[in-house]
Write a protein that binds this DNA or RNA. Sequence first.
DNA 1: TTTTGAGTTGTTCGA
DNA 2: GTCGAACAACTCAAA
Length: 452
Amino acid sequence: MPAVAWFRRDLRLGDNPALSAAAALDGQVVPLFVVDPAVWDPASDVRRAYLVDSLRALDADLDGQLLLQHGDPVEHVVAVARAAGASEVHVAADYGPYGVQRDERVRAALAKQGIELVETGSPYAVAPGRVTKDDGTAYRVYTPFYRAWMRHGWRAPAADVEAEYVMPLECHGYPERPDLPFALPAAGEAAALERWAAFRAAGLTAYDDTRNFPALDGTSSMGHHLKWGEIHPRTILADLGDSAGEETFRKEIAWREFYADVMHQRPESARASMDVRFDDDFAWDSGERADALFEAWAAGRTGYPFVDAGMRQLLAEGWMHNRVRMVVASFLVKDLHLPWQRGAAHFMRWLRDGDLASNSHGWQWTAGCGTDASPYHRVFNPVGQGERFDPNGDYVRRYVPELAHLPGKTAHTPWDTLGGYDHGYPERIVDHAAERLEALDRFAQMKGSPKT
DNA sequence: TTTTGAGTTGTTCGA
DNA sequence: GTCGAACAACTCAAA
């Protein structure tokens, strides 16, 4: 009797314990992916295109046996399991706010047919909820979490699977892949393993030094592979030693796990500030002027070159360097006084690697309302950050053509440079020094102590 | 039990 | 130019 392996955010065959568990029954497996309107409909073109690419790669790895269905998972998972005569549906546990309730509904519907939903593993090295303080509650500070996560440890990568893949129903085919004005990086398990090998060979040793400089190819670019589970973090961790670069990269993996753990503990924190004062009491701006400022930010027309380069990179590539993500986030929240949720939604729309937990909590860190929050007085200077992390101005010139004529670091200060505005670059939409003081003032006006 | 010190990513100001 | 202090309040672990 075959078992169903229902893929969701684990689009790979290697190091896949849920797939191994499905194959362990009698070797026959129905590999299923359901294109769920609840996930598909709100997704941007970037995210849709990447998902289609990733599904095609998985299908190829399965010799064309991936069964695609479109619609409500409750309906389709049950129908596929019944058609296959399966008594078990195997999944990797999903800990996201939507995934948890979806899986509850599917579990209940399957149970009515005498079919079991079996969870094996998760998209994390350590499943959310496993690392706790001695009193059993969850960590709210990263560094203690990291130490406890290291002590907890994780399994070795799972063995390769031997299975016969079968398709008991007609396949619905791929959803339409939107045309993008740019090329996405290659999707799929082979591409993920290739990128990981290349990064290990070329970038990992210097990662500690180079990851903060957006003009360099110093980051791993593994985010989109991890987001869809084309590689498991455990596969990555198994390759990491103790050099400075490896330790720093392990800590980045741990950030992903920390934020997933926090969101599991507080599902509403995907949209709501952990410190509720920031949603209830804080003096965010709104209205026509605020909307115009938001549009300028989103389009990369704030007049601050480093910010604009980042926002334009996002639109041009579906990706933004992490250092610049922090700078543009700080600018939206502390210079424009707009709520972090507006920026987070824009990021999730455009980032090919947008992960709900990391995105929401990264923004909350910047806004000062989240777990392990940035101190309120930590306001990034958009010019200083540019001069420090893009000292030659290469990053700015790459993404802001109106500044391409300005040499070296002068690209960061067109207002101080003769001919700085000759090619149509916009004036600064706000005065950073003034808005920094305004932000500090609004924080000071918020009453009481943090309410989490 | 209480106390103490550290805690991803910063900036400004004054000496 | 460099350097330390100040910019809060809270969480957590260790002493």
